[in-house]
């Protein structure tokens, strides 16, 4: 923590960065929240711990930061994946971010819980980027992660074994609760469109009403727009007040991208984006 504060202070005072996007303690000690540090004094408040769940890459695409100059950001490995993906998609200029990479020992799945094998976030269970792929400074040391069964994966297998009709019923039950707040979209670092298709009214492709039909179309299209782009931070699912298991949809798309194209989002600055490119030999055995 002291390392982090010192680094942030140094960057802010020597003018390397204009702001540092980081975490500070929130209402209770087992919670943190995002914070924009602008001064050396602000930097003193920064923390990094197992409750730093937010993916701060979300803030990089904000208009005010685009004009700021170099932005410093405290980032876990999964957050860096989002940054890489944003760079790939030309939303963030590589030279305009300064990544304070954190060696990461996992985070809790929901704030307000103690960190344990029970509560470690699903995304951390099989994490391959505990040391971020890209950073300007690397802080912290790696420790062993607690282990538990990946319940989502089990549920996914169960769903895969069902008939299409049964899967529909499963999702109908889940989507029914959706209130169309779009928190899933707002919390996602890769949902940066200035005008989301869900907000377009002429024509209105996705009904804004939170009835089953509108909820199906929103959730399907959201998942599709993130296919090959979602880096699996699960912020969408965490933000959802209706506790809809959105990560299943994202993960499914991620698995398809891996299987069909051997592609994983946010893993390298040299790989082109998945849906922005094509291959002459892409599978077409389903086309007559």
């Amino acid at each position: 923590m002291n390392e982090l504060r010192a680094k942030a202070k140094e960057l802010l005072t020597n003018g390397t960065v204009k702001v540092v996007i980081g975490y500070i303690e929130s209402t209770t000690p087992d919670r943190t929240k995002p914070f924009i540090a602008r001064t050396a004094e602000d930097a003193e408040k920064l923390v990094f711990n197992k409750y730093c769940v937010n993916n701060l890459a979300l803030y990089l695409t904000r208009k005010e930061f685009r004009r700021t100059g170099v932005v410093g950001i405290v980032a876990k490995g999964c957050d860096v994946k989002a940054i890489v993906q944003l760079i790939q998609e030309n939303q963030v200029n590589k030279d305009d971010v300064y990544i304070i990479g954190m060696n990461c020992n996992g985070v809790v799945s929901e704030l307000g819980q103690d960190f344990s094998a029970e509560t470690i976030a699903t995304k951390c269970l099989n994490c391959s980027v505990r040391t971020p792929l890209l950073y300007h400074t690397l802080l912290g040391t790696l420790e062993d992660l607690p282990k538990r069964e990946d319940k989502n994966f089990v549920l996914m297998q169960k769903l895969d074994a069902m008939s299409a009709g049964e899967r529909w019923d499963f999702w109908e039950d889940e989507f029914e609760r959706c209130v169309k707040c779009y928190a899933c979209r707002q919390a996602c670092p890769l949902c940066y469109c200035e005008r989301c298709i869900a907000d377009k009214t002429v024509p209105r492709w996705i009904e804004s009403s939170a009835h089953t039909r509108g909820n199906f179309s929103w959730n399907i299209i959201r998942a599709f727009h993130l296919a090959g782009r979602c880096i699996g931070c699960n912020e969408c699912e965490r933000a959802c007040p209706a506790e809809i298991p959105l990560s299943l949809l994202n993960r499914k798309m991620g698995m398809v991208a891996k299987k069909e194209f051997d592609f994983v989002a946010g893993m390298g600055l040299d790989t082109p984006t998945l849906v922005g490119t094509y291959n002459l030999n892409d599978n077409e055995d389903f086309i007559k």
Binding site: F224, A227, G228, V275, F286
Partner: peptide
Amino acid sequence: RRWILFRQL
């Protein structure tokens, strides 16, 4: 490419 993804979704 999109169809490959979308069909499975």
